[in-house]
């Protein structure tokens, strides 16, 4: 700690900045979770106070669980997020490999075309997407959401992954070719494990907007059968009366799955980094 680059005032300064940022970033989340355990009167009476034995109330959670379908909404959200994530990573990595590995006519144009989606928000095309889904009979199906989210996530995935795939040693791939491995084996067995940290990064970037999205579930799949958690939570937002206990409880619960996925991926991230360091 007492090396030239780590003087004490500097260390303290850095920690103060980082801790302040952490507090600011976590503040709304903590308020939500705290208030989800309080009675309605206490939420409005002292919104910043933590729950005490007097104000502690699980009414929010019992309402949410009691609403029966909520488990089902969770399931929908999870299916949509995991399936979209899977397709984004699979197709994104495959496209990135093709772009970085093979020389063909129009390679850079194709790369540009695939990256264009980063700059153009997919929501601009909502009307066209809705028409498309109506015509293909996919309205009110999870498939519709998975397709849209896959399209939404691919541009960034291709862009980031192709940069990383360019760094994978040519010699390694060529050694595989001389040993008679197919291009698919080279991709899945040699290249993918080496870009795992970047896959984890892409997974986190892709997953969170999908999980939190309200727009497409509302437009493409608002039926009771296909509601996602974010859409389901709207149930408690009335025009005149809002059930804050239930909303806060639903939001607190909605944080959990995405947090778990995040922990899984960041493990991968760290493991990828260390295995690279030892190699």
């Amino acid at each position: 700690m007492s090396t030239a680059t780590h003087s004490l005032p500097r260390t303290i300064g850095a920690h103060v900045v980082l801790l302040t940022y952490t507090v600011i970033a976590l503040f709304p989340v903590i308020i939500v979770i705290m208030n989800s355990f309080k009675s309605r009167a206490a939420i409005f009476g002292a919104p910043l106070a933590p729950p005490t034995p007097n104000t502690f109330d699980l009414i929010g959670y019992t309402t949410v669980i009691g609403q029966g379908d909520f488990i089902h909404y969770f399931q929908n959200s999870l299916v949509v997020t995991v399936a979209s994530l899977f397709f984004v990573l699979l197709f994104g990595a495959m496209a990135a490999f093709a772009l970085s590995e093979y020389r063909f006519r129009g390679n850079s144009l194709m790369g540009l075309y695939l990256a264009l989606g980063i700059m153009i928000p997919i929501r601009l095309a909502t009307v066209a997407i809705l028409q498309l889904m109506v015509m293909s009979g996919l309205v009110n199906t999870l498939t519709a959401l998975i397709l849209v989210y896959t399209a939404q996530g691919l541009p960034l995935a291709v862009f980031i992954l192709s940069e990383f795939m360019k760094q994978v040693s040519d010699d390694l791939k060529n050694a595989g070719r001389i040993d008679g491995l197919s291009e698919y084996t080279i991709f899945f067995r040699l290249v993918l494990p080496l870009v795992r940290p970047s896959m984890a990064t892409v997974a986190v970037f892709t997953m969170i907007p999908i999980w939190n999205d309200l727009w497409f579930p509302l437009i493409l799949a608002p039926s009771e059968e296909t509601k996602t958690v974010t859409l389901g939570a709207q149930l408690f937002l009335g025009q005149f009366v809002t059930n804050w206990n239930a909303i806060l409880a639903a939001l607190s619960l909605a944080i959990m799955p995405v947090l778990i996925l995040y922990v899984i991926f960041s493990r991968q991230l760290i493991r990828g980094i260390t295995s690279g360091a030892v190699k």
């Binding site: 010699d171 390694l172 060529n174 050694a175 008679g180 040699l190 080496l194």
Partner: peptide, 29 residues
């Protein structure tokens, strides 16, 4: 294709398969 030419190649960066043991590295081809 390279695998059918009856050749073997040694690379500057070794290019060993990181997930395989020495024995399997040698035996894969």
């Amino acid at each position: 294709p390279p695998a059918k030419r009856g050749i073997a190649m040694v690379f500057q960066t070794y290019a060993l398969y990181p997930h395989l043991t020495v024995k399997n590295n040698m035996g894969l081809g």
